[in-house]
């Protein structure tokens, strides 16, 4: 049994066959082939193998492969390749699930009382908006009836409750008597009107029925201050009215964005899912 050549020796023979050896290596391999039968057989068989492969029939091209403009100008398929579509589809599905679950948990985490408060506030707010403006106008229309309203400023700043407001009927009556100067006075408090929010009352929605004529006496030096405090109060109450609806508006916008995002991700997940399926089939 003949000895076997090592891999390195076969590589040398193979390279010698292709005339890829340097002078020194070439001489060494040539002498080995002449002296060693194993080398000689191995070399002959390698030579025949190469010859067989070299004479492998060449295949005629079935047609020309020249390109037409429409072949190279068509959209690249890489974007819609299977791996890309699969990746996009997976990411869209995960994001959709996250947004959906996150939104659901956020809404679920809101206490019922908060939701109820928001709803009641909105109703009160709407009532204020609808009722407040005409009253301000009517007060402005009352010529020469600049009523003293010193008590109204602290009341507004302290955000007094409806019950407290009921206890201050006299003060309110004093402050708002100017609207009803000609009317007969009455000591009976109007509970319906007093149950309104302080802000609404400050804005002029609470119309007292009793207004003592003595309270109409106002010193001239106090008029400017009173006017100033009246302006401040109106500004303040207006600010409060603006801030709350703004918060509600922001919340609505966020809800809209979340809803839109959910829809967009859902649609993207479905489209890419279908495309992935079609790409895989192709």
């Amino acid at each position: 049994m003949k000895k076997q050549l090592k891999q390195k020796e076969i590589e040398l023979l193979s390279a010698y066959l292709d005339n890829q050896l340097s002078g020194k290596e070439k001489l060494r391999v040539e002498s080995k082939i002449q002296e060693d039968e194993t080398w000689k057989f191995a070399f002959n068989n390698l030579k025949i193998t190469r010859k067989v492969l070299h004479y492998a029939p060449k295949i005629k091209v079935p047609r020309n492969f020249t390109l037409r403009p429409e072949m190279v100008n068509s959209k690249r398929r890489s974007f819609t390749s299977y791996p890309t579509m699969r990746l996009v589809s997976s990411i869209a599905s995960i994001l959709f699930a996250l947004v959906f679950v996150g939104d659901f948990m956020y809404k679920g985490a809101l206490p019922v009382s908060d939701v109820a408060n928001q709803v009641s506030f909105s109703s009160a707010d709407l009532a204020e908006e609808s009722a407040g403006e005409p009253m301000v106008a009517s007060m402005d229309d009352a010529d020469g009836m600049e009523a003293p309203q010193e008590e109204m400023a602290p009341a507004a700043e302290a955000e007094i409750s409806a019950d407290e407001a009921l206890g201050n009927d006299q003060d309110q009556a004093d402050s708002l008597e100017s609207n009803d100067v000609a009317e007969p006075s009455s000591d009976t408090p109007n509970l319906q009107e007093n149950s309104e929010t302080p802000a609404a009352r400050i804005a002029g929605t609470a119309i007292p029925t009793d207004a003592p004529e003595t309270d109409i006496q106002v010193e001239d030096e106090d008029t400017e201050d009173e006017n100033q405090s009246d302006t401040d109060l109106q500004n303040k109450s207006g600010l409060e009215e603006e801030i709350e609806p703004k918060n509600l508006g922001n919340e609505n916008r966020i809800n809209n964005i979340i809803t839109l995002t959910k829809w967009a991700l859902g649609i993207l997940a479905i489209i890419t899912g279908i495309q992935t399926f079609r790409t895989r089939r192709n």
Partner: peptide, 15 residues
Amino acid sequence: LLPSSFRLESEGLNR
């Protein structure tokens, strides 16, 4: 099955 000129030697296959 191979043409005679392409037949490998039966001996001398060494590795």
